[in-house]
């Protein structure tokens, strides 16, 4: 296969040498079936070893390689070079502080994920010897979609609310909390209420729907957040009990 040389503009930031991020251009010979991540690796291997970026599985499931390509948050392992015209501009995810080059600071994101208590909460745990909990395919279907989140944080980069309210818990975390609330095995609804429906919870969302537009796994976080608003509001009024349990 023949290579074609493509121009990449990559936002570089090396805090030990630069006070501010700036773009640097690279000419990269690309194979026709390359994704943007392949080009970044080619730069790292053969052109400029100082370029730093995260990646791992290269099959769209580990969630490491999210970046902005031509302004849109994407997984670079699933963004084909051939689908872009002209110069390709690669930047770190927006709404996150930049540690270096294309690497952003994710600690805050992970704290937010943790804040919604994304685990099964039960008053009485069943013993393993007693076998599994019964869960019908319909009950599974109810939360399945929201369990598909790979924590790639693209939705955080796309969310206009997070740009103005950095403390907003955010789409992925709320979708995850909602996923456990919808799980027929869970009884932790009340324990998640404060994180999901408190000061920085669902109410900050103004339903831009951007999270769902960029989600590479079709999780539809906007749906989760806004369904959670309805449940939260009904719980607030007392129409729905906070400890809803099957």
């Amino acid at each position: 296969m023949e290579t074609q040389t493509r121009k990449f503009e990559i936002l570089r930031y090396r805090p030990e040498e630069q006070s501010e991020p700036e773009f640097r251009s690279y000419e990269v010979p690309c194979m026709p079936d390359w994704v943007v991540l392949d080009a970044l690796n080619a730069i790292k291997d053969d052109i400029d070893p100082t370029l730093s970026h995260r990646w791992s599985c290269r099959m769209g499931v580990c969630g490491s390689c999210g970046m902005l390509v031509n302004g849109r948050p994407v997984l670079t392992c699933a963004a084909f070079v051939r689908d872009y015209e002209g110069t390709i501009r690669v930047e770190p995810l927006s709404n996150f502080p930049i540690v270096r080059d294309l690497v952003v600071e994710l600690d805050d994101f992970v704290h937010k994920i943790q804040s919604v208590k994304p685990w099964i909460v039960r008053k009485l745990e069943k013993d393993v010897e007693q076998g599994e909990y019964r869960q019908s395919p319909a009950q599974l279907e109810e939360f399945k979609q929201f369990s598909m989140c790979i924590n790639c944080a693209l939705c955080y980069a796309a969310c206009p609310v997070l740009a103005s309210e950095p403390d907003f818990v955010g789409p992925a975390a709320i979708a995850l909390g909602h996923r456990y609330n919808l799980d027929s095995r869970d009884e932790g609804n009340a324990e998640r209420y404060d994180a999901m429906h408190g000061h920085n919870g669902v109410w900050s969302c103004s339903y831009a729907n951007e999270c769902s537009q960029v989600c590479p796994k079709h999780v539809d976080p906007a749906m989760a957040v806004n369904q959670a608003k309805l449940t939260g509001a009904l719980q607030w009024t007392g129409i729905l009990p906070k400890k809803s349990m099957t």
């Binding site: 995260r54 791992s56 599985c57 099959m59 499931v61 580990c62 969630g63 490491s64 994710l106 992970v110 790979i150 924590n151």
Partner: peptide, 10 residues
């Protein structure tokens, strides 16, 4: 790496 990036994921 962050635990959820581990290769078990694949």
């Amino acid at each position: 790496l962050y635990p959820m990036r581990s290769h078990t994921v694949s």
